[in-house]
Design a binder for these strands. Structure first.
Length: 587
RNA sequence: CGGGGUGUAGCACAGUUGGUAGCGCGCCUGCUUUGGGAGCAGGAGGCCGCUGGUUCGAGUCCAGUCACCCCGACCA
């Protein structure tokens, strides 16, 4: 491959685009790799498409090497299969829906579980045919409420999605691990730094699920990692270490105080410390002494709903996503003003355990931090009144424990007890054991060795191909521009010819030709009019890993070999440069 | 969906009390220049997001509307 800057369809930008915030987006636009067409929808220019195709090729090679077989579905799909899995409804506004001329409903596939399931159903009917893994590399469509960060989160994107089909759980486990290994090989080859975190499988159902996250401050997934051991998990999946029950036998009895105008934790703490009759002798009250009770309306899949109260220490925030993960498939919404009249026991701002838990009352769950035997300041269920020293187990009971607080840096690691930190990452892969949800909905069964119909169990494995372009860019860039790992780079070598004489251009051309013949991918900057500064800046922005400058040093018989990653440069005799580069690119 | 912001040339931006639309980069022509985004001269390029209003006159003021960006909610 031999590209020429003189004719390459690219225009680099000197200024940062105003609408690009994250580095990958900014640089991919500036270096002329992609252009925005509509929110979350991008076009690929030649340089960008070269990188995209390299990544796609690597992914395909690794999937094939793992023994998975490639198929291809349409992106434009009929409604019917999605009705059967109920996802025509479940997917909500995120689904791109359209009508054909006969007013039939169609959609642009956001993911293809249904289609894969039906394809296997159409072909196979015996346990002898399994296990099977098939995959595709396909454009997906999701009408995201807010696309962002360039191609990191678009409404149109390319994903490699595979699906495994097994007769039993052992087989599913095996297929899952095959994918896990294949993803590890694949992401290593792509030059991505990543962590594998355990994750909730969310609305997809299923049990085991892990995400591959590429750590970067601009990632949109928050995860937790231990500062001591190698524990890492999605925040939804973090479990708090068990809190031992406290001995409450020596604690004073609970007292109710009038605490007017203290509807928030902050005002409650302030008032408690100001008042002579409430103030503590040994230390000041803090938010951590208070028990905050937050009420939600939980709706279950059968359509019924009920209020649900969650208790957390007052110095902590509740994390609705973690609660939902624990209550799946129920969904929560905050209690609204209009809900209060229906539950007169609940006094807004002064809700306490007295009105919660137990028979006939509102279901009451507490975070593990509200341990058995601990004492709290909390609402007395009357406007302007709080109760002090209310002890769990002595003065109130709960209906259960739930992971409810927002995990913050410094919380204990569930594995080793050291502290965790919060980090951000880009979800580049997600593998999970789906189970039988789709097979059941769509009737995918096979005959087992006893001639009995058994429902097939499935796994689903996604890898963002277009997103990987941005994730790699995010992890491989500096203040000058992009710095691609060799295998995904648009070329191996960027030859820059400078000067007004013909000699450097002729030498550069000759070098480009011989490299090209040797299978080295070359981009040559053969522009006669452009000044050396422009060419150097462009080379650094475009980010091909090796840069060769053929210029004024040619008079001494040498060219300059620059490493884009380290920034180091070395003079190399013209006679040796081709050999050096060929070795470098084959290494 | 809530909060904030922005719409003026391909890109990045300025535009005062309302008075014929500007700068830089990029692009075209010529000359000079050639190791870190060159210089000079001459050019091309605009539905000032859209609609309505006020006014002799609107990029500018008023009302409405649309779009886009950022933060949050949401996100198999």
């Amino acid at each position: 491959m031999l590209l020429r800057m003189s004719t390459l369809f690219v225009r680099t930008l000197r200024d940062d685009p105003a609408d690009a915030e994250v580095p990958s987006h900014r640089l991919l636009v500036r270096a002329g790799y992609v252009r925005r067409v509509a929110p979350g929808i991008f076009s690929w220019l030649p340089l960008g498409y070269l990188v995209y195709r390299n990544i796609e090729r690597i992914v395909r090679e690794e999937m094939d090497a793992a023994g998975f077989q490639e198929v291809h579905f349409p992106a434009l799909l009929p409604r019917e299969p999605y009705d059967r899995s109920n996802r025509w409804e479940e997917y909500g506004d995120n689904l791109f829906r359209l009508k054909d001329r006969k007013d039939g409903d169609y959609l642009l596939g956001p993911t293809h579980e249904e289609m894969f399931t039906l394809m296997v159903k159409g072909e196979y009917s015996s346990y002898k045919d399994l296990p099977l893994v098939i995959y595709q590399i396909q454009t997906k469509y999701r009408d995201e409420a807010r696309p962002r960060a360039g191609i990191l989160r678009g409404r149109e994107f390319v994903m490699k999605d595979s699906y495994s089909f097994d007769v039993d759980d052992t087989g599913l486990e095996r297929s899952y691990l095959r994918h896990r290994d294949a993803y590890i090989t694949c992401f290593d080859r792509l030059g991505l730094d990543y962590v594998i975190v355990s994750a909730q499988s969310g609305a997809m159902g299923g049990s085991q699920s892990e995400e591959f996250l590429a750590p970067t401050e601009y990632g949109e997934d928050t995860y937790v990692r231990c500062t001591a051991c190698d524990y890492a998990a999605n925040v939804e999946a973090v479990v708090s270490p068990p809190m031992p029950a406290q001995d409450a036998s020596s604690l004073p009895p609970a007292v109710v105080h009038d605490t007017p105008d203290t509807p928030t934790i902050a005002t409650l703490v302030d008032v408690s410390n100001e008042r002579e009759d409430i103030r503590r002798a040994d230390r000041a009250w803090t938010a951590a002494d208070t028990l905050k009770n937050v009420v939600f309306m939980a709706t279950y899949p059968d359509g019924t709903s009920e209020p649900l109260a969650v208790g957390v220490p007052g110095d902590r925030e509740v994390d609705v996503k973690r609660i939902e993960a624990a209550l799946h498939p129920a969904v929560l919404r905050p209690f609204e003003e209009g809900d209060f009249p229906k539950y007169p026991a609940l006094v807004k701002g002064y809700i306490g355990p007295g009105a919660l838990g137990g028979e006939g009352n509102i279901r009451y769950l507490v975070d593990p931090r509200v341990a058995e035997g601990t004492a709290w300041i909390t609402g007395a269920n009357e406007k302007g009144r709080h109760v002090y020293g209310l002890v769990r187990g002595r003065d109130f009971d709960v209906d259960g424990q739930i992971e409810a607080v927002e995990i913050i840096a410094g919380d204990p690691c569930p594995r080793c007890g050291a502290t965790v930190e919060i980090a951000r990452g880009i979800e580049i892969g997600h593998i999970f054991q789906l189970g039988r949800k789709y097979a059941e909905a769509l009737g995918l069964t096979v005959l087992d060795e006893n001639g009995k119909q058994v429902t097939v169990t499935m796994g689903s494995y996604g890898l963002g191909v277009s997103r990987a372009v941005a994730a790699i860019a995010e992890q491989h860039c500096d203040d000058k521009g992009l710095v691609w790992p060799r295998e995904v780079a648009p070329a191996d070598v960027h030859i820059v010819a400078t000067g007004k004489e013909d000699a450097p251009f002729e030498t550069a051309e000759e070098l480009a030709r011989s490299l090209n013949e040797a299978g080295v991918r070359v981009l040559i900057d053969d522009r006669r009019g452009a000044s050396p500064g422009v060419k150097f800046k462009d080379a650094e922005l475009i980010g091909i890993p090796t840069i060769v400058v053929v210029g004024k040093r040619l008079a001494d018989g040498v060219v300059e070999l620059r490493d884009r990653v380290t920034g180091e440069s070395a003079d190399v005799p013209v006679s040796e440069i081709a050999g050096r580069l060929i070795d470098l690119c084959r290494a």
